[in-house]
Amino acid sequence: MPHTAHGHQHDSQAEILDLDAEVLAEHTSSITAWLPVTAAPVQIVDLGSGTGAGTFALLARFPEAQVTAVDSSADHLHRLREKAREDGRADRVRTVQADLDGQWPDLGEPDLVWASASLHHMADPGGTLRQVHDLLTPGGLFAVVELAGFPRFLPDAAPEYRPGLEQRCHEASERHHATHVPHRGADWGPMLTAAGFALEGERTIAVNIENARSAAVGRYALSSLRRMRGSVTGELSAEDLAALDELLDTDGPRSILRRADLAVRTERAVWAARRPNR
C-alpha cells in the first residue's frame, strides 16, 4: 500500500508543530526580539502552546522568566515537558491542560501573554481577549501571532504533470476554513482595542526560505499537505487528488520528499497590545 495520507494516522498534529518550530525558529526569535517590552517579564503565559515553539523562544529571549504553557492536548504538553527536561529548563516551565473555551484555570498574574496560531480556534475570540485583558497585570503585554494559512512549498508551475496544483489546494482549503474556522486570517487589532487593550505595535513578517533542501523542510511540506488533503477532498477534481496523492506517496517516484525545488513561503502577522495601567 502506498504511503499516502490515508495510511498515516500516526502523522500527528504534534509532529507538524515540531516541524513548524524547527523550520520557522529564526522567524519566531525575530518576533520575540521585536516585542515592545518595557521591562523583562517574569511570569509568561503561552496560550495554546502546542509542543512549545513559543514557549522555548520566550525562555531564550527572557532568561529570568517562568513560562506557563497552556494547551488542551495532553500529548502536546507531554512533548513540551520532555523537551524542557532534555535541555535543562524544566524548572522554568509549568504546563496546564485546559480547554480555553470552557472554565479558565488559575494562571497567576502574568506580565506577558503569548498566543500563536491559537486565537482563531476559539469559539468566542472576543471573550478570550477580555479574559486575557483581565488576566494580565496592569501594564502587561499581550502578543498575538497568526499564520496566513498553510505555507506554500512548490514552485507555481509544479508539479510538472499537474501545474498549479498547490494553488488549487490552497483555494479549496480556504473555502473549507471560511466555514469551519471563520476567524482564521482575522484582523485582531480592532478586536484587541474593543477588549480594552492599547495597541502598541503591528507587523507582518514575510517568510521566504528558498532552496530549502533540509530534511525538515521536506517533512514539513509532507505533513502540511497531508493535513490539507483532509479538508480539500470534496473540493478538488479527481485528477488533482490523484496528483496530490502522488506527492504524498513517500515510496513513489513523485514523492515531495524527492523534490529539490522546495521553499517555505508564508506570512506571519503579529500584534502587540498592552493592558493600560489604570
Rank of each mutant, 00 (worst) to 15 (best):
L244Y: 05
L247K: 00
I256Q: 03
L248M: 08
V264A: 03
A260V: 10
V270W: 09
E246N: 12
R258H: 14
W271H: 06
L247M: 03
I256S: 01
A260G: 12
A263G: 13
A242S: 14
R259V: 04
L248P: 05
D240R: 03
R258I: 05
L248Q: 03
W271P: 02
A273T: 05
G252V: 07
V264L: 07
I256F: 01
D249N: 15
A263H: 15
R274W: 01
D245G: 11
D251P: 03
D240N: 07
L244G: 06
V264Y: 03
E267V: 12
S255A: 12
L248F: 04
V264R: 00
R258F: 07
L257K: 10
L247D: 03
T250M: 11
R258D: 12
E267A: 15
A260M: 10
D261V: 01
A273P: 03
L248W: 03
D261H: 10
T266E: 06
A243T: 11
D251K: 10
R258K: 15
L241P: 00
R274G: 08
A243M: 12
L257D: 10
D245R: 14
L244Q: 03
R265I: 08
L262T: 05
L244E: 08
D251S: 13
L247N: 03
L248Y: 09
L262C: 12
R274V: 05
A272L: 03
L262P: 06
A272S: 13
D251H: 14
L262Y: 05
E267F: 15
L247Q: 01
A269K: 14
L241I: 11
D249I: 07
A269E: 12
W271Y: 12
D261P: 04
L241A: 06
A242H: 13
A243V: 04
D251V: 11
L262S: 10
S255V: 02
R254H: 13
V270G: 10
D249P: 11
E246V: 10
R268K: 14
D240Y: 02
T266I: 08
L244A: 07
R254S: 15
R258W: 01
V270C: 09
A243F: 03
A242D: 12
R254V: 02
G252T: 03
A272F: 02
I256W: 01
W271T: 00
L241T: 01
R268T: 09
G252S: 06
A269D: 14
T266F: 00
